[in-house]
């Protein structure tokens, strides 16, 4: 049976053309006997007609103002943080190489006089012959020939290959691969440009010039971050994930039990996050553009949460309402 409250709901649905035939019958039956609701129907119809007329044109200059602000943004959505990220990775890989080379050099030095070198040396010693042989094979078809009779040190990066012919699995293989070098000068060539998609480094960038005992290699990040966003390292991500999962468990969110806290995605906070953030006064003071927006759960659907964490303490400062 249809009472007035139900009738008002049905009237609303009718305005949007969402009534089923049964509901329409129900409504008409009620209206036939209810003057109040007949008046309500008329009034609701008037409002339904007038409301769309409130729509205004966009004020003059607004479109341009929007585009001016977009243009004033110095960074472009994707490539924003690639550079620092690549440099960091490259710098740490370079440091690893430097240690190995030093170790290898030491080994040579000591091997000559019958002593063994430091901790890096045994590993270097074991890896060296195989790596050198492998490197020789791959390099033989390449452009690098220096005319040296001794084995040439060839540092091969995880992804690219100096000869551009042989592709290697994209793992961090910098450590196990090693070479011995006698007076080898290490020349490191950074990637020519920060590219959003991984591409094999061309031999040209990392080629050797004749006569020089230079080792060059191209380095690519081992994995590309999704959409080119800056992300913290694995350990930090895990700490963030754990902090957020714990915070969520203690919270009063409806969806907290449905959020899969094994799924985590971390990105720098955006202006939108900062504007929409909910946190208490103390935390709000700590919240700034250097902090992390941590998304827990599956973003397809509604079973996820976005929490904001301090870049230094990694503690949860607040959250971003999803709806």
């Amino acid at each position: 049976m249809c009472d007035c409250e139900r009738a008002l709901e049905l009237l609303s649905l009718e305005l949007d053309g969402q009534l089923t035939p049964e509901e329409k019958g129900e409504l008409e039956a009620h209206l036939a006997g209810c003057g109040e609701c007949r008046r309500a129907a008329e009034e609701l119809r008037q409002l339904h007609t007038i409301l769309p007329e409130l729509e205004e044109e966009v004020p003059d200059g607004l479109h341009q103002a929007i585009m001016d602000r977009i243009g004033a943004e110095k960074v472009v959505p994707l490539s924003r943080a690639r550079r620092p990220s690549q440099l960091r990775r490259w710098a740490s890989l370079a440091a690893v190489f430097a240690v190995i080379l030093l170790g290898a050099g030491t080994w040579r030095l000591f091997a000559g006089s019958g002593l063994s070198g430091g901790t890096a040396a045994p590993a270097a010693a074991n890896a060296a012959p195989e790596a050198a042989a492998a490197a020789r094979d791959t390099a033989s078809s390449g452009a690098e020939s220096t005319g040296q009779t001794e084995e040439q040190p060839k540092m091969v990066s995880g992804q690219g290959d100096v000869s551009n012919d042989v592709s290697q699995p994209a793992q961090e293989s910098a450590a196990p691969q090693d070479g011995e070098g006698e007076g080898a000068a290490l020349r490191m060539v950074p990637p020519a440009s920060a590219q959003p998609t991984p591409a094999p480094e061309e031999a040209g960038e990392s080629g050797q010039t004749g006569g020089q005992q230079a080792v060059t290699f191209g380095i690519l990040p081992a994995e590309a971050a999704p959409e080119g966003a800056v992300q913290p390292d694995a350990e930090t991500t895990e700490t963030l994930r754990a902090n957020c999962a714990a915070w969520l468990a203690d919270s009063a969110f409806d969806q907290k039990d449905r959020v899969d806290t094994t799924l985590v995605f971390v990105a720098p906070v955006t202006e939108g996050d900062l504007a929409a953030a909910v946190c208490d006064g103390e935390s709000a003071a700590l919240l700034d553009g250097t902090d992390w927006a941590v998304t827990l759960g599956d973003t397809i659907g509604h079973d996820y949460a976005v929490l904001l964490c301090d870049s230094e303490t990694l503690a949860v400062l607040g959250y971003v309402p999803i709806a």
């Binding site: 607004l62 966003a229 955006t270 202006e271």
Partner: peptide, 26 residues
């Protein structure tokens, strides 16, 4: 009011532009 509405409209689009990297088409 129109003034705040204009400002908020600009901010919405600016936030969208900045947040595009994070927008995954869900």
């Amino acid at each position: 009011n129109p003034e705040d509405a204009a400002e908020l409209t600009q901010e919405a689009f600016l936030n969208a532009w900045r947040g595009l990297g994070r927008f995954q088409g869900e």
